[in-house]
Amino acid sequence: MAAPIGQPRVRLPAQIKAGEVIEIRTLISHIMETGQRRNQEGQIIPRDIIKSFTCTFEGQPVFSMDLHPAISANPYIAFPFKAERAGNLEMVWTNDAGEQRKLTQAVRLAE
């Protein structure tokens, strides 16, 4: 059974101006089991990680990431985004078992 995936969280600046390059910051709770540790009986604990993250804006790719076991538990991922117009960011986290967590974040522009 795969380790639980927590509720993803995202932070954007409070005020966004059209054309501004903002920073999108994300966090998701996950153990990121490396597959290199052993349990008390000496058996390898199977690898179980968030292996990919993608972010699209109105269906267009923005940023994605392949994660390996060297990414820390509770992966933190941040990246810039040029906010040309209002719309929705869609973010998807996927674990080794193919389970996904999705989050939709509206981008609203200040007047």
């Binding site: 990431m65 994660l67 076991p69 060297a70 040029k82």
Partner: peptide, 25 residues
């Protein structure tokens, strides 16, 4: 590290700037 791969970041022009942040072991 036991295996050298850490991450691959895939960028696009929609980002406006080429940067990525994460935390590693």
């Amino acid at each position: 590290n036991p295996t050298p791969d850490v991450a691959t970041f895939r960028f696009s022009p929609a980002m406006g700037r080429a940067q990525a942040d994460t935390r590693i072991r």
